[in-house]
Amino acid sequence: MAMVFAADQQSTLRWFWLAVIPLWIVMALRELSWGGVFMPALSVSEHGPYFSSSQLWYRSYIVPMLVAVSLLVAVLFIKAKGPHILKYLVTTRQLPYADIVLVILAMIISAGAEGHMGLNFGDWGHMLVLEEMSETAAYVFLLSAQARVGLALRHYSPN
Rank of each mutant, 00 (worst) to 15 (best):
W17A: 01
E135R: 08
I21R: 11
L95S: 03
E46W: 04
A113P: 04
I62F: 04
V44G: 02
R93V: 05
N159E: 10
L95F: 14
L95T: 07
L151A: 07
P83K: 02
G82P: 06
G125S: 03
W124Y: 03
V20Q: 13
V69R: 00
A6N: 06
H116T: 01
Y139D: 04
R148G: 10
Y50K: 08
M27Y: 07
P22A: 09
R93E: 08
L18W: 07
A74Q: 07
Q9R: 13
W17H: 01
G36D: 09
Q146M: 13
A98R: 11
S52M: 08
E114M: 12
G82Q: 06
A98L: 14
I85H: 10
W24S: 15
W124C: 02
F51S: 13
V140N: 01
V37F: 08
S110I: 00
H84F: 08
S43W: 00
E31T: 12
M133S: 14
I100G: 11
I78M: 13
N159M: 06
R93I: 04
A152E: 10
S53P: 01
G35H: 08
I109P: 07
G36E: 10
L102T: 12
I85E: 09
T91A: 04
A145K: 00
L151E: 09
H47C: 03
L13Y: 06
I85T: 09
I100C: 12
F38M: 13
L105N: 06
V69S: 02
I109R: 03
A68Y: 12
H84C: 05
P22N: 08
V101A: 14
Q9Y: 05
R93C: 05
V75L: 10
W124I: 15
H47N: 11
Y61S: 09
M117D: 02
A137K: 02
P49E: 05
I104T: 15
I100H: 07
S54Q: 15
W124G: 05
A2K: 07
Y156T: 07
L142E: 03
H47Q: 11
T136K: 14
L95H: 02
L105M: 14
S54E: 15
M39G: 10
V90Q: 04
E132N: 13
E135K: 11
L13K: 14
V140D: 04
E46F: 04
A147W: 15
T136I: 13
